[in-house]
Each structure stands twice: as structure tokens, then as C-alpha cells.
Amino acid sequence: MRRRAAASALPVLAIAAGLAARALLGHAPASLFLLFVLVTLAATAGALFALAGGTSLAERLASPLLFGLLVLWAWEMLVLGLKVSPVLLPAPSAVAVAFADHYRTLAADFRLTYLHSVVIGYAIGCCLGFAVAIAIDRSPFLKRGLGPFASLMSAMPIVAVAPIMIMWFGFGWPSKAAVVVLMTFFPMLVSTTAGLAEAGAMEHELMQSYAAGYSATLIKLRLPAALPLIFTALKLNSTLALIGAVVAEFFGTPIGGMGFRIATEAARMDLGVVWATITVAALAGSISFGLIALLERAMTFWHPSFRAPAGS
């Protein structure tokens, strides 16, 4: 009980002391300011230790949240306290201001990069990888030939084709989408092919004993069994797609987009906008990953990695 009380009181104390220290920065005597800094650090450390033993969902969530807040706070205090030049590292508050100031630009960049290059490229690349995997499924020869080739391509620095795609498809979003297609295609092909081999021998024989044909076996047995690996590729690809689109823009986009914004504003030393764009990219990446993970949970609930411990 005492631990629980500490676990709920310390974070509150830490946050309050942190806010006070931030407010006092530069206005109050140094000794008072230092006191609040020390209290913040001690309370956070204590809270993190107390929370480490917790098992409830709230306690599990509180640890990383508090840790994240501590990092943000320390970043803010260090930048402001040491008067770090905004050309090197802007304070989080400055990033927030930049975010608010450039809201429209950021939204336009997001639309161009995410809603066009990423989403369209991702959809085409994943569908194509899946379709090719199904198409070569009946040919062991092609599977053995394309398999190693595709795994090799998955390890290639495919983003580097960006300048070539720009040459072929122009400076607009289609060239970035093309890079995304290439980046997502091979992991999907490899995973789907591997997934289609997941169903066990016994399950295959069961279908054989029912005289089930190729397509019935594919639909009733092999595709469901392949789902976990297909989702692995879908999740991996959601990150790869964003990287592909952003990095492809580093190679040249005279119009806009998140990668373009990062590259040009970094060159102009306007790091507030850069950090704001990075925040958007990070949020877009983790939210899309999270959504796919939720879908995965809904569709492969039966997989051992998701099963609730066998009750009844």
C-alpha cells in the first residue's frame, strides 16, 4: 500500500517541481532554482523505481510516460539554462511554437508526403508483393529462384534508387511513391512466400483427406496460416514506406513534403521547423504502425503470441 501511495504521489511531485523549476529559470535566485531541479530529479527517480515493481496497466504506462516527460524537461532546462544556440538544438517549447506557427505548412507537407507518396506507394507495393507471392506459389522453381533474389533485395539500400525514380517519374509525388513501392514490395513477397509455407503437414493432409483442391486449401488453410507473417511485413513496411518517401525527398523535391522541409530548413538553420516536421513524421509512423498492429490483433487473435493464457 505504501509503495502504491508513493507511486502516485511522486510523479505528481516531480511534475509540479519540474514546472516550478521551469518557471523559476532565470527569474529566481539560483539556489531556489537548483533546489527545484534536485527535487524534480529525485522525485522522478523515486517514482520510476517505485513504478518498476508495478503490474497494473496504469503503472506500466506511467513509467515510460514519466521518463519521456523527464527527458523533455531536461532537454528544455539544459537548452535554456546553458543558453544553447537554437541553431544547434531548439528547446521543446521552441519546437512547440514552431509547430503552431507553421501549422499550415506542416499539414500541406503531411498531405503530400504521407497521403500521397506513402499511402499510395505502400498500398501498391504490398498488394504487388502479395500478388506475386501468390502467382509464383505453384511454381517451386520460381519460388526457389525468386526467394533468394527477393531476400537479397530486401537488404539492399533501395532508397538510393530515388534519383533514378525522380528521373523517370518527375519531381512530384509519383517518383516518391515509386521508391516506396520498391521498398515495400520485396519484404511483402518474402513474408507472404514464407507465410504460405507455414501450415503444417498434418493440416495439409487433413485438407487432402477431404479431397480439397488447390484454391480451397489456399483459402481455408494456407492464407489464414500466413496471416501472422503477412502482418509482420505490413508492419515493417509501414515504417519503410515513410522512410522511403522522406528520404527520397532528400534527393530533390522542389514542391514540398516532409523530407523536403527537413532538408531545406536544416540547411537554413531553422531547426524549430525541422523538429516539428520530425515530430509529425514520428507521430505518423507510430500511429500507422499502431493501427496495423490493432488490425493484426483483431485478425490473428488465435496466434500463440496473442492468446490469453488457456483458461477453462
Binding site: L48, F49, L51, A52, G53, R60, S63, P64, L66, F67, G68, V87, L88, L89, K235, S238, T239, L242, I243, V246, V247, F250, M258, G259, I262, A263, A266, A267, M269, L271, V274, W275, T277, I278, A281, A282, G285, S286, F289, G290
Partner: peptide, 30 residues
Amino acid sequence: WRTLDRSLMPWVIASQTVPILAIAPMVVVV
């Protein structure tokens, strides 16, 4: 340290979903 496991590990995992490469130009410039 269990504390690190609880507080840092979720961020390490979450950052795999983030296009980290996006910071490259900024790091180089800074």
C-alpha cells in the same frame, strides 16, 4: 535494472516505428 526496462524499453521499441532516418540532414548540419 528493471527501472530502465520499464521506462526506456518502450521508447526503444516505439522508435522502430518512427522514420529515424529523417533526422539525418539535421544531425549532419548541427
